[in-house]
Amino acid sequence: MTRDSKPDLLKVEGLKAYYQMNYYGVEREVRAVDGISMNIKRGEVYGIAGESSSGKTSFIKVLAAAIRPPLRVVEGTVKYEFKNGPIEVTTASPAQIEEVRWKHLSYIMQGSMSVLNPVRRIGKTFKDFAQRPLGLTGAAFEDRVIKHLARLKLPPEVLRAYPHELSGGMRQRVTIGLATVCHPEFIIADEPTTALDVVVQKEVLSLIRDIQKEMDSSVVFVTHDMSVHANIADRVGIIYAGRLVEEGPTKQMFFTPKHPYTAHLVASLPRIGDTTQRPALEGRPPNLADPPQGCRFHPRCPLAVDKCRQEVPPLETVAQDHRTACWRWQDVKPLVGSAHPAGVMA
């Protein structure tokens, strides 16, 4: 694969980020990110899947260099190798971060309304965000923006529109436009299609994919929806209770998962044309203020043995680019009703 030849753009090593809070004597430490290491290569789409309160939101906050109290990085490094030089976001000064923001590192957020000011025309918002990083003014800037919008199949007229005059899909395309107009090297997309209808969702996804290919940017795509990952990601990483439990090429993750949690996520997806009973996973995700000992998935895991209850499994390489943190990964079989019948055989 071409991915192997490409250099790493982001290196995360042993990252621990905790929320430390104290309210009227109730002290709490939430270990939202508890030792995550991963690398993301140039030009790849890396999908991050995880449930609510799995720590994925905190993790991408750190990646996006938006670390604000009570969230604190306790350990580890997050290093980007941008073209204009490396930056370590956990120690960088606000000025250094400001320097790379939008130009090298940008985001597409969930609700388009949180980026678009409802009382400002879209064109104004583009100016606010992109004029400085692009270093263009007047007609040159406008020209650049219009060309970019055309790439997203948006007419130049949207620049004169207010956000509420656009449909949900259009607005989300505008936010994608905002995030990509400076040709950033790294884009963080946080559930960008969750609020969209199915038809529009597919359009927006293919748009993100196209523009990413064209610019050869890296994208971290966060969503809890596994079927979105199946279609957009090159690699998928699964976060459970603050830890990366499995990562690998998308195809392998869906057809030969090596962690029981991944296997379950894939197997529980219903498909049109198939009415066989889907399994449900019992229990609930652990409380990050008081996580279980050993493997954090063990209370819900059908394969759990004593070792799982006591020792934390390390991330082991099980195939090329495929790592899993499970003591019994060799026993993990794709569950009944897995995404592809051939997957059972493989």
Partner: peptide
């Protein structure tokens, strides 16, 4: 038909087919 075609399938996960 359009709705059905827009359902993201996992049958060919990793193939990156997204065009409608």
């Amino acid at each position: 038909q359009l709705l059905k075609a827009s359902v993201l399938s996992t049958d060919d996960a990793g193939a990156g087919k997204l065009a409608t």
